[in-house]
């Protein structure tokens, strides 16, 4: 049985799919600077959702899970920065 603090899995999947769709739309429609920012933000949100919503391991060590999310956000931010700088 899931602890009550868990986010319902269908909700996590729905949010991940929505964020993926928005990311693809942003890649096709926006100019470089807002595109970089939106894609970095959406990727960071997706990484956090995946770790918190799907990975059971995050319950065992919230510090390491937080580091995992921070690492993913760092890579997302670098990707967003490259998009904003180079188009």
């Amino acid at each position: 049985m899931q602890p009550s603090r868990d986010i319902p899995l269908p909700l996590v999947l729905g949010a991940l799919l929505l964020a993926t769709g928005l990311g693809l739309l942003a890649a096709m429609l926006l100019s470089p600077v807002p595109r970089g920012f939106v894609i970095a933000a959406l990727t960071g949100i997706k990484a956090a959702l995946l770790v918190v919503g799907f990975m059971r391991l995050q319950r065992e060590s919230s510090m390491l899970a937080g580091a995992l999310i921070a690492y993913a956000i760092l890579l997302s931010a670098l990707a967003g920065l490259r998009i904003a700088l180079a188009g």
Binding site: G23, A47, A72, L75, R82, I83
Partner: peptide, 16 residues
């Protein structure tokens, strides 16, 4: 889930 997470990072770096 790690394989999923890696793909989520590949997507903005390479495709988007």
């Amino acid at each position: 889930h790690v394989v999923d997470l890696v793909w989520l990072l590949i997507l903005p770096v390479i495709y988007l």
